[in-house]
């Protein structure tokens, strides 16, 4: 019995002594941290996402105080945090363009499965299988939610078999971009006005793309031809937007025969031929209006050709 009591007492006493020593040491050896560092840490989101390239939020705060990191490097905090940090450091934040993760798939290929997948509920695991998963389309979203698990902000969710980004919550940290085995998520500059996206990653030829998806890009290049700013290029049977050039006019969305291109997250209604008054009223609108008149014709021509 004595042994048990001794054992407990000795360990408790030793633990208490070490605890006390550590507590005293914490006071005695306390290092004055630059108060700015703690202030910066206070206004950072604290998600430790690593999007800035430093190990966690504290690492970034230390780097900012040392002058190694720009004040607007925190993608998660956005402009608001950049402004706060700028105030603490006494420099102006400068405008950082808000970015947003964008899933380049509509999920309309979910009805075209190659086989029934019953394995691990994880895209990376599924993508190792023959055919790269059960999806007929070899480019689309597998919908098993690897991005959902990776997201530190609960901003991406698989809805109806395809990953959808919550624009409010997304901080553009890029975690989902890295984890997606299909590489269909990308960070895009998010314009507050009109944000045009081509939510498809298929490099298949038109015929093959039609077989596995209801509205995937068939590479008809109508959008590229009609873009007034030449912001859309065809890369290997897929239309890609150059956001440096895109003005958000949405003509491409009007032209798309597959009704794929979205403006501000929605597929716009195809407008009927523009009324004649429009060109007079606004000369700037003349350009978009003219091709819009050809819309039904072009669409009709495109359909049988493919």
């Amino acid at each position: 019995m004595n042994t048990v009591i001794f054992a407990v007492v000795v360990l408790a006493v030793l633990g208490a002594i070490f605890g006390l020593v550590l507590a005293i040491a914490a006071k005695v050896f306390a290092v004055e941290v630059d108060p700015r560092e703690e202030a910066i840490l206070g206004c950072l989101p604290g998600a430790n996402c690593g999007g800035c390239g430093y190990p966690g939020c504290s690492g970034y705060a230390a780097a900012v105080v040392k002058g190694l990191a720009p004040v607007n490097a925190c993608a998660a905090g956005g402009e608001a945090v950049a402004a706060q940090i700028g105030e603490i450091m006494g420099v102006s934040a400068g405008a950082s363009v808000k970015q947003l993760a964008q899933v380049h798939c509509t999920g309309c290929g979910q009805n075209y499965k190659q086989y029934h997948y019953v394995g691990l509920h994880d895209c990376v695991a599924a993508s190792k299988l023959p055919g790269g998963g059960d999806l007929g389309c070899s480019f689309g979203c597998l919908g098993l939610g690897s991005c959902e698990k990776a997201c530190p902000f609960d901003a991406i969710h698989v809805i109806d078999g395809v990953a959808k980004v919550d624009e409010e919550k997304c901080k553009a940290c890029g975690k989902c971009v890295d984890v997606c085995p299909r590489h269909i998520i990308a960070l895009e500059p998010y314009k507050t006005k009109r944000h045009v996206t081509i939510p498809c990653s298929s490099h298949d030829k038109g015929v093959d793309a039609r077989k596995v998806c209801d509205n995937g890009c068939i590479g008809c290049s109508l959008c590229a031809k009609n873009c007034p700013k030449e912001a859309i290029t065809m890369v290997n049977n897929l239309a890609v937007i150059d956001y440096e050039k895109c003005i958000g006019c949405g003509i491409c969305a009007q032209k798309c025969p597959r009704r794929l291109i979205t403006v501000d997250g929605k597929v716009p209604e195809v407008k009927p031929a523009a009324p004649k008054a429009a060109p007079k009223a606004a000369p700037a609108a003349a350009k978009p209006a003219a091709p819009a008149a050809e819309a039904p014709k072009a669409e009709a021509a495109a359909q049988p050709k493919e």
Partner: peptide, 29 residues
């Protein structure tokens, strides 16, 4: 105290707090 069977757990305690202590000491000194 004939508590040699407690060596492992005691040593773990010592090492863990020692490392903590050294870290604080080095940070300052």
């Amino acid at each position: 105290l004939k508590l040699t069977f407690m060596q492992t757990v005691t040593y773990i305690l010592v090492i863990a707090s020692l490392v903590q202590f050294i870290e604080m000491f080095l940070k300052k000194a």
